[in-house]
Design a protein around this nucleic acid. Structure first.
Lengths: 332, 332
DNA sequence: ATGAAAGCGCTAACAG
DNA sequence: CTGTTAGCGCTTTCAT
C-alpha cells in the first residue's frame, strides 16, 4: 500500500467513525450492556412520572436529564398515567433493566414504591412527596408544601377573602396529604371558611368540580380558589367563565407552579413559584451522590416556593391601578 | 417444618415477591441486561429531543411512551438542548446502550443524525423533519408544514392582512426549511409582503427579535405574525405589549401547536392544531413495526394540521361580536 | 509488570 | 423432546 492510498484510507476512517474524536484516539466504544452485566452498574437512572401530561414535569425531566448527562448517566423514563398497576409494572421493568437509581413522582403517597424499594435495594427518591417514615433509605425532593399553602392563604386573607376553597387531586392520587390538612388547620386558627374540593386530573373534570362548589348560597359563595397546580387553576378560570364571574373582581385565584404561561393568562395568574428544573436536578444529584459514595447530607431536600402576586388575586381597584405591563415568565 | 410454618412462609413469600402475580407463577424475572447482551435486542427505544423545555414535546414523549409501554418496550430519553455536540454524544450513548430503534427531533435538518444512521443500522425516525433524501432507511413523522403555512396565510389574507411576518428558528436549528420557502412563494403568488424573522429559541430572544422588526415605518409596519410554535407566539404577545399594540386590533397573531394554554391566553390564540401525542405514538409504532418484521407502508407519516381560529386573528369588530365564552383547550 | 481465564445471566445451537 | 454447552463483550481475578 503506497503512501497516497494510506492517506485516503485515513481520511475515510476519519470521516466515518472518528468524526468528533481526537486524532490518535481509537474509535473504540465499550458495549454498555456487557459492562452493565459484568459490573452490575448500568449507568442508567430511572424516572417514573405519574402524569407526563402535566407541563410541571417537563422541566423536572429536563433538569434530571441535565444532571445525568453531566455525570455520564443515561435516563430511562416512563409514565404511570395515574394507573397503580402500571406504576408497579414500570417499577419492575426498571428493576429488570438494572437501573442504578430511581426517581418517582408517585401516585398518592406511593405505598407500592415503598414495597418495591424493600426488595430492590437501590437509591430511590420521591418527587414532590414526603419520604415514607418507614424506609430510611428513601430520599425525597419537594417544594415546601405546607408553608406554601400558608403563604397563599395569608395573602388572600389580607385581601379580604374569607371563603377559601382548596382544589386538590383525590386523596389516593395526591402525594401531599399534608396540604389539605394544613389548609384546614389554618382555617381553624385564622377563622376563615375552608372548603376542600377533590377532582380527578383533567381540565374538564376539574372545571365541573369547581362549578359544583360554586353553586353555594350567596352567603357561603367561595370568593377565592387555591389550587395544587397552575393546570387546575386554568380549570378554575374556565369554570368562572362558565358562571360569568370575573377574575379577580368576583373571584381570586391562586395557582401553584408558575408555569411559563401563568403570566400570560387573562388575567395573569397569582401562583406559587417553584423551580421545577431544580427539583429534577436535585433528584438526580441525590441519586448520583449516593451511588458514587458521597452520601448526601440531607435525605429530604426541600426547595423554596414563593408567591408571585399577579392580577388574579388583586381586588379590582388594586388591579386597575397596577402597572399592567406583562412581566416575563420564568426564564425560558 | 410443620404445616403451620409452611403456611406462614407461603404468606411471606406472597407478600414479598409475588404481589401482583397469579398464584402458582414463579416469581422469576429474567435479567433484561443479560437478555440484551445475548440476543442483541434490548427492548429499549431511544427518544432524543432537541429541546425538552418546549411543551410541544411533552405530549410527544407521552404518546411515544404509551405506544412503547403497550408493546413491551422501555424508553430512554435525552435532550440535546440545541447543542449539536451533545446530540452527537447522545446518539452514541444510545448506540452503546444498544437501543433497538431511535426517534430524534433533530437540531436543524439533522445531518449528524444521518451520518450516525449510516454506521449504526437500526430503525430511525425523524420527528417534525422531512426524511433526508439520502438515507432511504430513515423514516419520519411530522405535521404537514407547508400546507399549514398556506392555511394560515389564506386566513390572514382573507382578514385583510397584507404585511405578514413569519417567525422561525435560525436556519441551522430549524428542521423544516420548507416552511419559510413556502411562505415566500405564497407571497409572490398572492401579492402580500412577506418578511421572515429568525430568532434563537427562548422567550426573551424572540420577544426582542419581534420588537426589532416591528420598528418599521408605518407603511411597512407588520400587521400579522405567524410563528412556528405557540411558544414563539407568546413572545409576540409580549413584544406587542411592549409596543402598546393591541391584539387583534393592531396586530394578528397565529401560532402553531395548539398547546393547552393557547385558548387561555389573552386574547385566545389562533393556532394550527396538531396532535402531538399522535406524533409520538406514530413514531414509536413505526419503529416497533420495523423491528417486528412488519415493514410500515409509509416511511413518511404526515399528520393532519388544522387551523383553529380564535380571537388573536379576528379584526376588532368581528372579535367583539363573537361569543366570548372560552372554549375548551384540547382534551385534558 | 502483562497475559490468561473465569464468569456476569441469559439464549441458541447442539447433542442425546 | 429434554438436557447440555458455548458464548454475547466485558471486568476481575489469578497466574505467570
Amino acid at each position: 500500500m503506497g503512501p497516497s492510498a494510506r492517506a485516503a484510507s485515513d481520511r475515510d476512517l476519519f470521516a466515518d467513525g472518528l468524526r468528533d474524536q481526537g486524532v490518535g484516539e481509537l474509535g473504540y466504544r465499550p458495549n454498555a450492556t456487557a459492562v452493565a452485566l459484568r459490573t452490575h452498574r448500568s449507568q442508567v437512572l430511572g424516572l417514573l412520572i405519574r402524569n407526563l401530561h402535566n407541563p410541571f414535569f417537563l422541566d423536572v425531566v429536563d433538569g434530571f436529564d441535565g444532571a445525568c448527562a453531566a455525570a455520564g448517566y443515561e435516563v430511562m423514563i416512563g409514565s404511570s398515567r395515574y394507573d397503580p398497576s402500571r406504576e408497579w409494572e414500570l417499577l419492575h421493568a426498571f428493576q429488570d433493566r438494572g437501573v442504578d437509581g430511581l426517581a418517582v413522582a408517585p401516585i398518592g403517597t406511593g405505598p407500592a414504591v415503598g414495597d418495591w424499594a424493600e426488595d430492590y435495594r437501590c437509591p430511590l427518591v420521591l418527587l414532590n412527596a414526603p419520604p415514607p417514615q418507614a424506609g430510611a433509605a428513601v430520599m425525597s425532593v419537594r417544594g415546601v408544601g405546607a408553608a406554601a399553602v400558608a403563604q397563599a392563604v395569608r395573602h388572600l386573607v389580607e385581601l379580604g377573602d374569607r371563603e377559601l376553597t382548596l382544589v386538590v387531586a383525590p386523596a389516593d392520587k395526591d402525594p401531599e396529604p399534608e396540604r389539605p390538612e394544613r389548609f384546614r388547620a389554618l382555617a381553624r386558627e385564622s377563622g376563615f371558611a375552608a372548603r376542600v374540593v377533590e377532582t380527578e386530573p383533567g381540565l374538564d373534570a376539574a372545571r365541573e368540580a369547581v362549578g359544583r362548589v360554586s353553586a353555594e348560597p350567596p352567603s357561603r359563595r367561595p370568593t377565592a380558589f387555591l389550587t395544587n397546580s397552575d393546570h387546575l387553576a386554568q380549570a378554575v378560570y374556565l369554570a368562572a367563565a362558565d358562571l360569568g364571574w370575573r377574575v379577580p373582581e368576583d373571584l381570586s385565584v391562586v395557582g401553584h407552579d408558575d408555569l411559563p404561561t401563568a403570566a400570560l393568562l387573562a388575567p395573569p395568574l397569582t401562583t406559587l413559584r417553584v423551580d421545577r428544573r431544580e427539583i429534577g436536578r436535585r433528584a438526580a444529584t441525590l441519586l448520583i451522590d449516593s451511588l458514587e459514595g458521597r452520601p448526601p447530607a440531607r435525605r429530604d431536600v426541600v426547595v423554596r416556593v414563593d408567591l408571585r402576586v399577579r392580577q388574579s388575586s388583586s381586588p379590582a381597584d388594586i388591579a386597575n391601578s397596577q402597572d399592567r405591563k406583562p412581566e416575563l415568565p420564568c426564564r425560558n
